[in-house]
Design a binder for these strands. Structure first.
Lengths: 238, 238
DNA sequence: CCTGTCCAGACTGTTGAACAATTTTCATAC
DNA sequence: GTATGAAAATTGTTCAACAGTCTGGACAGG
């Protein structure tokens, strides 16, 4: 337990170097949070495992204090879980987690889509994401399909024009990706839904948001059943 | 700037003492977060003011490191705002903040209410909150009215049976209370809505969630206009 | 008088070591 | 085999220090 292959960050510590010119001031803690988030949702950090402050701070070559800030960040995001005097653990999604996530998704995505204007900017994002997913599927890049799928649904939420709602949905997506990481069977989970996504955006573009919303609702119920089934299989024989 | 009358915490630092028997293990940082949160939403910590790490850690008699953990917590809640290398500031809600908050409220509360079962446990909570608000109004306790109002709407969201949705709404409520603190005119803001709340819960109990939802939507539009008006008046002549 | 430059002071970002309190481990005794 | 109890490991919190960044004012020039 506590095993992982996190590399140390850029050892030059003098300047807060921006590899990309954008995103001006990321603090060290935020950078590390991004890295650990990556590890968690990719499944390399197994849910339920304990993250030792000592071990991790050595591995990442940061001080314990900084690492604790990172933990706070990720805890608020729902990826890690605190236990008093016992430390942090990677969150372990349960069936009720999945049920709640999909309840929220139906609750938010369907109305957002139903009330959408077909020429809303986010609609183009949906179209782009759908085509990207399609391409990735043809290439067998299932991880790419998953990413595009997330982007597609994020775009649906953006139809509601509410930054707070989009933020909230981002968090939900994160938790969902944690579940996906647990299930390592991306083809089975994503392949059936690419075409449904396309149908949804096509209906929206055709000026039928109501129909799109109904398709989406059916999609979400079906996806929930798929995920729950896969989860039961995995948790049955780990 | 930096002024406030936060008292030092219990100076006995040996044990994590629980004044109330419940809530077993609150970390120091969480305790302090609660205290500062209180100061922020009560308006004693003015929006826009700078919170110096040095000053505050002296005043609260905690180390800078612990205080930084507190800041992280409250930043994620939306009550504080970070600026790189400049420190934390109390968040300053803008008009677009208010607009977004009410958009989210309509988006979540109305459907939650419309689909509710009249005998849902949360419905009793709504009734209780409404009566509490009524009592407080009679006594002129406008702060109490505000608290009861928040509880009432939190109960509405609970009708949807989603922990994540309720958590999200809690955050939105926090931000809204920050706005209220900015407006110091609780009577004007809360008094008109007590009776509408009662009408909403009565309709729900009578088996008419649809009607309740419509009343609620009107309520929310009206409240938004009130708040925006008050905000414009305050920000015009501060 | 206004404007731009430069410097010192104040503050944040991060570190490493230290100690108290709590949990876990493990050897021992019944 | 289970209970006991002390040692080891881990977390919670503090302190002091230093590098990087921002702020405000002194100072020189137009």
């Amino acid at each position: 337990m506590g095993e992982n292959e996190l590399e140390a960050p850029n050892t030059k510590r003098s300047a807060r170097q921006n590899s990309n010119g954008v995103e001006p001031s990321l603090t060290l803690a935020e950078t590390l949070a991004g890295r650990i988030r990556e590890q968690v949702i990719s499944g390399r950090l197994v849910p339920g495992s304990h993250l030792s402050e000592q071990t991790l701070s050595d591995e990442l070559q940061v001080s314990r204090n900084t690492l604790r800030e990172v933990f706070r960040l990720l805890t608020k995001e729902g990826l890690l879980r605190y236990e008093a005097n016992r430390g942090v653990f990677v969150a372990t999604p349960s069936m009720s987690t999945i049920v709640d996530i999909y309840r929220v998704r139906r609750f938010i995505e369907c109305p957002a889509l139903a009330q959408a204007h077909p020429r809303h900017p986010a609609a183009s994002k949906m179209r782009i994401a759908v085509e990207a997913a399609h391409d990735c599927r043809d290439k067998g890049d299932w991880l790419g399909v998953g990413t595009a799928d997330i982007a597609f649904h994020a775009a649906i939420v953006e139809l509601a024009d509410s930054p707070r709602l989009s933020d909230f949905y981002r968090q939900i997506s994160l938790e969902l990706r944690l579940v996906f990481g647990l299930l390592h069977d991306p083809e089975f989970l994503h392949a059936p839904f690419v075409d449904q996504n396309r149908s949804i955006v096509t209906q929206l573009e055709a000026g039928n948001p109501q129909g799109a919303s109904e398709t989406l609702e059916a999609y979400l119920f079906q996806a929930e059943r798929f995920i729950l089934g896969a989860y039961a299989r995995v948790s049955g024989s780990p």
